[in-house]
Amino acid sequence: MAITDNTPIISVKNLTKRFTPKICALNDCNLDIYKGQVVVIVGPSGSGKSTLLRSLNLLEVPTEGEIIFDGVNIADKNVDINLHRQRMGMVFQHFNLFPHMTVMENLTLAPTKVKNMPLEEAKALARELLKKVGLADREDAYPIQLSGGQKQRIAIVRALCMQPDVMLFDEPTSALDPEMVGEVLQVMKDLAAENMTMVVVTHEMGFAREVGERVIFMDGGHILEDKAPQEFFTNPEHPRLQLFLSKVL
């Protein structure tokens, strides 16, 4: 396990999210994430795992509860969420690259507009990161010209260009052809090896076991299990998790 700080970088307290009074996507969730940790969240569809992840950067606004990011409760309405989102990169299932911009424009938009970084500096940073994911030659391409795996690697680089403290992944490989899953997971593994704090919602049990430091199981808006992967997969306690694992493994 990586060395972890004493104070969590993200602390979720009594988080509840209701879409309607009856539909409760998250029910009193508590979770501490420490610097450098790779936390993997698994669970069946509709279990609330994506909602939990999207709550962390307030793409979903919580109904109740607190999300403390680096000491600040970002669920508070008076907090400028844009400042905190800069420090949390997010990668989406469907990539969400900006189709009207080239790869380079996708990568430099936020650094130049949000951080006011000079364009040349932003480009240099983008090129360096592109090289890392093996796409240095595609900076002038439009998203339509890329494969799914390439798009997702670009999307990861786009988030990294903001030099975030935390990276959030919302089913990053679910929309990919099986052949392309590996290249995206490899980028994520490299990122984990660099000690990036990561929260990953995924169906890739192999990734959870290999890269995760903690695996969290959710169902019905509850966090049911939160363990090291070895324990999680070999010794599941909750019957719902046992059932889940018997079906997916």
Binding site: M90, F98, L109, A110, A155
Partner: peptide, 24 residues
């Protein structure tokens, strides 16, 4: 997802509209 991606990068709602959503 376009607006969400823009917002997740820290762009304000106005910037997201101007640079990402409106051009599309």
């Amino acid at each position: 997802g376009q607006g969400e991606a823009a917002r997740s990068l820290g762009l304000t709602q106005g910037q997201s509209m101007r640079y990402v959503v409106l051009p599309q």
